[in-house]
Structures are given as C-alpha cells and as structure tokens.
Amino acid sequence: MFENCLATFKLQLKISMKNKIVFLYSLIIPVVLMFVNQRSDYKNMNIVYSFWAYIVVTTILNGFMMNVISLRENGFLKTLSYMIGSKESIVISLFLEQLLLIEIQILLFNVILSLFIKPLAPIVFLYGFLVTGLATLLGTSMLSVLFLLKIKLQTFNTITSIFFLVGIVLLNINPSGIWGYISTAINPFQLVTEIYLIPYSLSALAWGSLGLSFGYLIMGFFILKNISIKSQLSRV
C-alpha cells in the first residue's frame, strides 16, 4: 500500500504542478489582501490565522475536492482504484499531496509577511506548520459533506468560486456571541481559524470548536471511506 500511495502522491504532485492556477486563489489573494491591510494590527495574530485559514480552506476546495470530483467524473478514479488495488491509497495520497501544498503556501505567506510587514518569530512558523496538519484534516472532513451532492464539475466550480468570495468577505469579520457559535459550526473559514486560536483561549467557543471538530472528523472519515468511485452523472 505504501508503494502505491507514494507513486500516486508523486503523480498527483506532477498534475498539480502543471496546474499552477490553484495558487492564484489560495496564496496570491491572501498576500495581496495582506498588503492592502498593512495598517491592520498584526500584533494580534487573529488576522494572520484568518489568512492561514483562507489558504487551508481554498486549497482543500480547489485542490483535494476538485481533484477527487474531476478524477471521478472523467473515469480516472475508477481506473486508478483498480490499477493500484484500493481507493483508500488514492484518497490518502491526494490528502497528503494537498497538505504538502498547503504547508508550502503557508510557509511562503509567512516569509512574505516577515520580510515586508511584520517579522514573525520562528515559533510562529513552527506553530503554523504543526497546527496546519490538524486544520487541514479538519477542513477536509467538514467539506467532505460536498461529496454527498451529485453535482457536475462545473457546478462544483461555481460553489468553489462562491466560497472564495465569501472567504474574502469573512477574512476581516469575527462574529461574537451566538453568531460566533453559528459561524464556527457552518463556516469552514471560521472553524479553521478557531482551531489556530485554541491555545490562546479555552473559552466556551474553543471547547465548542473542539467538540464540533471531533464530530466533523468522524463524519469525514465515513464519507471518505465510502466515497463512490463511479461517476455520479455519466456511465464510465
């Protein structure tokens, strides 16, 4: 299984490198917004974590999820599943490939932030690297609910674009009170931001986020374990 995971991982990385447009949304937009918001208070890490969350969620949508749906609809997922003998190897390698891309993007974002706006301590780089693994796993689990919809790739593209716009709008909004709870439960950008914030405050919202995360992880596990390899819209 490891051999096949590694081979699929390398193959997917090659495909992603050929399709560099993904970085436009997930890295370049936060970098541009960071420069636009230069006057923001970067002593407060919330805004940095919001940017990290944006990178995580948009890469999951535009990378992992788009990949799985596109592979499934064009018949490649079925081909690959029988070639390497398991769909689990494919899902795991796609996830790991996505995690690598996210880690690279967050590293680049931190380097640019440090060079041009506010130097970040090495511990922040390490913290970003470590927590991003958990945040990516959680974001993937939460968004995996979209796999239950029988939608065309074009429809998924539209949903993704809406997510990107909503994500940009929500970057500077931190709802409090009941809206904070609701937003954390249904908005992946907010939930991932809360995960980055947990060490700073063990508030009721943080505990709620942890509980929600656990629920989403279980849900994601079952959805991804039982994901169909057949095209949902045509016979392949």
Partner: peptide, 18 residues
C-alpha cells in the same frame, strides 16, 4: 477480492496533462 482484479471499463481515462 477487488484488490486482485484489474478492471478496464468503457469510460476509463487518465489526466489529460500527463
């Protein structure tokens, strides 16, 4: 078991860029 089966169905494909 499925792991021991090679299956080429009608619409199978590879990624176009490869």
């Amino acid at each position: 078991k499925p792991q021991r089966i090679g299956y080429l169905s009608q619409g199978n494909n590879f990624e176009n860029d490869l």
